[in-house]
């Protein structure tokens, strides 16, 4: 029987049925890095912070972490929405323009 099979170059092969591996718990989906969207960066004043975790629970991007005795922002993914600053009951999070930081986000690094 003649073969009607399409030869697909290795680099063009995709996972069969488009079924992909899930990221690990508390991990990240590196195919969609979103830190480059940010215009205002959340900056935590650790003196004021009471570790109440409001910013943590309300973050749509899992971009605020409880790191030992401190809250920390995962800048690689934080889109800069500002919800964390808004829900903070003690005003410990300030939103600072990216351009004020050395190496701050100044443009979209890739399309999405």
């Amino acid at each position: 029987m003649k073969s009607y099979e399409v030869k697909i170059a290795k680099e063009k092969l995709l996972p069969e049925a488009g079924i992909v591996k899930a990221p690990s718990p508390n991990g990240e989906q590196e195919s969609m890095i979103t830190g480059c969207w940010r215009v205002l960066r959340p900056v935590i004043d650790h003196e004021k912070c009471t570790m109440c975790r409001s910013c943590w629970i309300f973050c749509p991007d899992q971009a605020i972490e409880v790191k030992g005795e401190e809250m920390a922002v995962k800048l690689k993914y934080c889109k800069g929405c500002g919800i964390c600053a808004n829900v903070c009951p003690v005003g410990a999070i300030e939103r600072v323009p990216e351009l004020d930081f050395e190496g701050g986000v100044v443009r979209l690094e890739k399309l999405f």
Partner: peptide, 15 residues
Amino acid sequence: LGHGPQIFPDQGPAL
């Protein structure tokens, strides 16, 4: 596993 995520148009031909 994730079954059936969206694709880029250029991923269509291979699938």
